[in-house]
Design a protein around this nucleic acid. Sequence first.
DNA 1: TCTAATTTGTGCGTATGTATG
DNA 2: GCATACATACGCACAAATTAG
Lengths: 339, 339
Amino acid sequence: MQERMIDLIKITPDSPVPKYKQIINSIYDALDNKVVEKGNKMPSINELCRKYNLSRDTVITAFNELQSRGIVTSQPGKGYYIAKPSADQHHHIFLLFDNLTSYKEDIYSAFREEIGRKGKVEIYFHHFNLKIFNNLIEDSIGDYTAYVIMPIPSKSVEPILDLIPKDKIYILDRGRRLFGRKFPSVCQNFKEDVYNALRSGSDLIGKYQKLSMIFPEPSNIPRDIKRGFERYCKEIGMDYDIIQEFSADKLAKNQAYLVFDDKSLVKLVQSAQALRFVPGRDIGIISYNDTPLKSVVATGITTISTDFTAMGKSMADLVLNRKKDHIINPCSLIRRNSM
Amino acid sequence: MQERMIDLIKITPDSPVPKYKQIINSIYDALDNKVVEKGNKMPSINELCRKYNLSRDTVITAFNELQSRGIVTSQPGKGYYIAKPSADQHHHIFLLFDNLTSYKEDIYSAFREEIGRKGKVEIYFHHFNLKIFNNLIEDSIGDYTAYVIMPIPSKSVEPILDLIPKDKIYILDRGRRLFGRKFPSVCQNFKEDVYNALRSGSDLIGKYQKLSMIFPEPSNIPRDIKRGFERYCKEIGMDYDIIQEFSADKLAKNQAYLVFDDKSLVKLVQSAQALRFVPGRDIGIISYNDTPLKSVVATGITTISTDFTAMGKSMADLVLNRKKDHIINPCSLIRRNSM
DNA sequence: TCTAATTTGTGCGTATGTATG
DNA sequence: GCATACATACGCACAAATTAG
């Protein structure tokens, strides 16, 4: 037993981390990975000194610190023993968002709240720029206990992720298909979500003759959304098309629109107002990602939206408990007057 | 290893460039030429003093600057270590927001865009919690070249700010009255802004019999807004009151409402819709802080708003050029159908 | 447990040159 | 010419952290 335990202590002499702290961290890691448990005997002080060429005092400093934190107890004349079944390690979390939009606040707040005092969270943004993405991760390697990442949707992010220890990576929001089950994740299943949300609103959609998706290109909107949309339309035999940029002349009565960015939504509603088309009667509007204001835009916009608070909470749960799950975040259709 | 590193520092005593800057440049060169890498130990302060006949203070000045640029980290009792794989950015900016609301996105994007490749921006949120505020700043001291801060409106933030070098602090958005001309700033003048915006809209406001401000308490909305509002109403002899929480029964015809938070705005618009009161005819609505969606809420909400993009740009200009200005950010009334 | 060596961190005093008014 | 402020550089002293023996 001690033999195995000894090997769990990793000392790198030239690290900026003090040796006694490296010992402490090793014990925490061993507890987290459940390779030691309450009651196990710790390797003796002299054993560690010899094996790692450490000063006796260095080991004692570490053990004293562990004892004062309640992780180990000492039995004079016998040795040190693990005193706790698990340890609330201090998590230092690298949270990499794509960009700063209003619903990110929901994810972040929920995440932070769940993490609470158990860790410190630092936020970064890559703005879908691969160079920034790589630099941020490269700079941060070794500095965090967990890396929660909204990836850029491209194969080219993989080499840089390989530099991070695999068991510290968590994938957030998108990248479900890109990474499969390679990392723990809380993601949307964009294709299924859109498909299911549209299905659940078939009674509303049926009122219209055609369903147009306003999908700006190039954009960072997940491609899978388009696939889910197309699958739905084909399946129920709905007339549909995909518009790259909305303009007023594309607005027609008895047509419904599925819109993703706020800018297009604003244009769409303004055009409708100009022609005195009433959303929900003359035209239909479904918007993506819900915000409080959308409930009063025009006379209320129907939205397809994932639950961002749930997303933040689930991710915190994964990180805190080192779970390896692959969670699909819930998504639903929120019915309002615009359809 | 240290031996080689020592030689990488070139000091020419008679050069016009200060010695501490020569040290900094040497480290940059070493990083550029990849003769040092992340995690390498720097030669100790005393070592450099002896070897190059430098004052200890000179070396420390250089190392502190490197640390605040994020190039090195220090561990008391051990030494200084290279913290980045490569270095090109000379500004390392600590950006502390109060919370994440939609218009923060505008400030941040504009700020980031102006900073460009000249620096790295790290963003934090204090949520008006003094403890978080203090912890975030305390933890960050010495790690950044500039601290851009949206303060908590309270005297109690001053002691912690005193710990930051005075010439690295910039005040953003609020705190104009709290700090006066103590730090460079880009702030709103809430009292004047509201007063002037209301004055410029007197033709619209005159249509209504009463002007009600919906001002939730407690809240983090600047108190000065209330003062500007009261001053305007008294000056033109307008009947007015201040409502702490809006409820449907408080909605009355021929009355105008000045509303600050999205939650109250949503309630207000929904109540109006329920009673079939048309904004701009039966009731008036003015909302604070513009977002794209507000142009299509109901049939368009009139807003009083500062220019958040300008705010971000101005702040970037101050930081990049180390200007000491005190800028009042422009604010105006944006006329739409709701008044 | 104690001593010793090395390291960073901080404070204070001093001196010099330069820019500003 | 004078006063002031600021950046640069030096010297000394002491505290606290890290580690060795």
